[in-house]
């Protein structure tokens, strides 16, 4: 008897999707990324006037550029990659030969999604390693410059320690890793959203556009909700109920903007990272289940 869901079969489809995307040379982006990091690494701000100056700005700029590149890759890849996968299998009739084996449709969908997510994870992990390495090297250099400058200007121990802490705060921290995690979680939701659209859309373009539209709405849905609550003084109106409903279906992507805080050197508590993980898992599971309901009845 076939079970409703088989982890083994899902992994087979997921690893095949991973191989497919790797052989489509998506990781070539990493070469461009490394080159961009190298350029950013050699870019130097004129900050030699003192320890309180723009020393940490250099680190912030490096983080901004690398996380920006990560975000660009992950967002575009999560949407376009996922939007392409199922229509391509249908068009090439590869899906016929897969579904004519004892493969439940949920295994196929979940396997495809997991394959995409694995590629994003590996790419982001590699980019994170490069960023952390570059940041570590640069922080050491900046730290030396700051401490030398502090000594030259006769800073006392307390002021020197404060300057040292400031540089450390902008270096490679656990909060920065939590920021990268938040970015990854956002793309997990995006990929599952694109998967949902691709189960019923008739063109890849529609899936891509709709995913970007929802992505955009997801960034402002929190603001709209707050605005409506303020306007209605806490009373329920049709508008606020509607926004609440939309707020449940569409994730509040603004919650994942903790990445910006991490770049700014702020601390992200573990509880916040766990909360975001939970939100991402719930939304990814929700979209996958809805996709399955639609895909289960789809005819080829």
């Amino acid at each position: 008897m076939s079970r409703l869901f088989s982890f083994h079969r899902m992994m087979v489809i997921s690893s095949s999707t991973f191989t497919q995307l790797v052989r489509m040379k998506v990781f070539y982006f990493l070469v461009v990324f490394v080159l961009a990091i190298l350029v950013a690494h050699f870019f130097k701000l004129p900050h030699t006037s003192g320890p309180e100056s723009s020393a940490h700005e250099e680190l912030r700029m490096l983080k901004n550029a690398t996380i920006g590149a990560m975000s660009l890759f992950a967002t575009i890849f999560a949407i376009t990659g996922t939007a392409l996968l199922i229509p391509k299998d249908i068009e090439d009739r590869t899906l016929y030969s897969i579904l004519s084996k004892p493969v439940p449709r949920l295994d196929y969908l979940a396997g495809k999604l997991l394959g995409i997510i694995s590629v994003i994870f590996v790419a982001m992990f590699a980019m994170d390693l490069v960023m952390t390495g570059a940041l570590e090297l640069r922080s050491n250099k900046v730290m030396n410059e700051v401490l030398t400058s502090a000594a030259q200007q006769g800073y006392d121990a307390e002021a020197t320690e404060a300057a040292r802490q400031e540089v450390l705060r902008h270096g490679s921290t656990w909060s920065l890793q939590a920021g990268v995690l938040a970015l990854f979680l956002k793309t997990v939701i995006l990929a599952s959203l694109a998967l949902f659209f691709s189960t019923f859309s008739t063109s890849t373009l529609f899936t891509v556009i709709m995913s970007f539209v929802v992505f955009f709405i997801g960034h402002i849905v929190g603001d709209i909700r707050e605005y409506l609550e303020l306007m209605n003084n806490g009373e329920t109106s049709i508008g606020s109920s509607l926004t609440k409903a939309v707020g449940i279906i569409i994730p509040d992507f603004a919650l994942f903007n903790v990445t910006d805080e991490a770049i700014a050197g702020k601390t992200i508590p573990l509880s916040a990272a766990l909360r975001l993980t939970l939100i991402a898992v719930v939304y990814a599971a929700l979209y996958t289940v809805i996709s399955w309901f639609i895909f289960a009845d789809k005819e080829f």
Binding site: S2, D92, R93, T94, Y96, S97, S100, K101, P102
Partner: peptide, 16 residues
């Protein structure tokens, strides 16, 4: 899905 354990299918103009 169980019924497909004993079936092999070659689609027309297959692309893998």
């Amino acid at each position: 899905v169980d019924s497909r354990h004993e079936v092999g299918f070659l689609p027309e103009n297959p692309y893998f």
